[in-house]
Amino acid sequence: MGTELQYKQPKSLLNKGTGFLAGYTHSLNPYTGCSFACSYCYVRQMPVSLFRPLEWGSWVDVKQGAAELLEKELARAKKKGKVTIFMSSSTDPYQPAEYKERVTRALLEVMAAEPPDFLLVQTRSPLVTRDTDLLLRLGSRVRVSLTVETDLEQVRRLFTPSAPPVAARLKALRKLKEAGIATQATVAPVLPSSPAFAGLLAGVTDRVCVDDYFMGDGSGGKRTGRLGLSELYEQIGRQDWYHPSAYLEVLHRMEQVFGAERVFVSQKGFEP
């Protein structure tokens, strides 16, 4: 599926942290839309997608002038008090458009010069390693949360065919860790995985967050339920994984390897 890029001039960038992100003062999205088009993405059921005539994943809005706007908004926000930023809540800041458009890198340059109190970078793309230099400048003020929903590549291809392969994400986590950048592997949503999954993650990161549709989509799983995902689970005969208790097995495996103090569940794992 091709992606149509549209260039927009946003009036604001920093949004108040609410709901699932209430622990943050702000959320920040370099783009609107996401060409990874993951089958389970809760944003598919939000107005930004529902009221757009084009299919989710086929369009991306590039926010022009984002760095200059962030510089002004960040300065104002810091005058009011502590600033913690979640990037990003409704798009992937390192989706394919970022290779050329470099909006996310421009925003990181602003934050490296005038750091917020904390920044969480949420992505599933190995492209994040390109910006190691800027992430290092943020030091202890940043954590990269890289999504790895499963260790089974065939499952990844079924649920997120346009997203980066599992091996590439594991390699990215390793590179970030070796560079001295704080990371976590985000098993969100929990997809069918093997007993070896926890061991693979332990080799590339020191921290894990486990989340699923029922805890993390903002509606107790109802928003995700409208996407027809049960059919995908039926295709691989793993309907048992599409259940509110399925995450417990993965959680147990992670705790066995990482220790309970380094494994977090849902909202707690994303907080500053």
Rank of each mutant, 00 (worst) to 15 (best):
R105N: 06
G139H: 07
S194N: 08
G139E: 14
P189D: 15
A168V: 03
A112Y: 06
D133W: 05
L119D: 09
L170D: 05
A97V: 14
T160A: 05
A182W: 10
S125Y: 02
L146V: 09
P96Q: 12
P126M: 09
S194I: 06
T132D: 00
L138C: 13
K175W: 09
T123R: 05
A106E: 02
A185S: 15
E98C: 07
A172S: 13
T123H: 06
R102L: 08
L127T: 02
L176M: 08
R174T: 12
A179N: 12
E109N: 11
Q122P: 00
E114R: 04
A196P: 00
A163N: 02
A106N: 07
L127H: 03
V155T: 11
M111T: 06
L176A: 13
M111V: 07
A182F: 14
G139R: 04
R157M: 15
A112H: 11
L135T: 13
E98S: 10
T186I: 07
L170T: 04
A179V: 15
V148H: 08
P189G: 13
E109M: 15
L191G: 01
F159K: 04
R169A: 05
T160N: 00
E114A: 15
A97L: 08
Q122K: 10
K177S: 07
R102C: 05
S125F: 01
V121Q: 03
V190N: 02
P126H: 10
L134I: 13
P96R: 12
E153I: 00
R157T: 09
E149V: 05
L146W: 07
Q184W: 09
V103Y: 05
P164D: 06
G180E: 15
F118A: 03
Q184S: 15
V187D: 05
R169M: 10
A182Y: 12
Q154L: 02
L138T: 11
A113N: 06
P195H: 11
I181N: 07
R124V: 01
D117C: 06
A112F: 05
Y99H: 14
A172D: 04
G199C: 08
A196T: 10
Q184G: 12
A172P: 04
K177I: 08
P116H: 01
A112W: 05
G199L: 14
F118P: 01
Q184D: 15
P96W: 13
Q122S: 09
L138E: 11
L134R: 05
R130D: 05
L191H: 07
V110P: 03
L134C: 14
E109A: 14
V166N: 00
T147A: 10
L107T: 02
L136A: 06
A198I: 04
P115N: 10
A196S: 13
D133T: 09
S193M: 06
E149R: 01
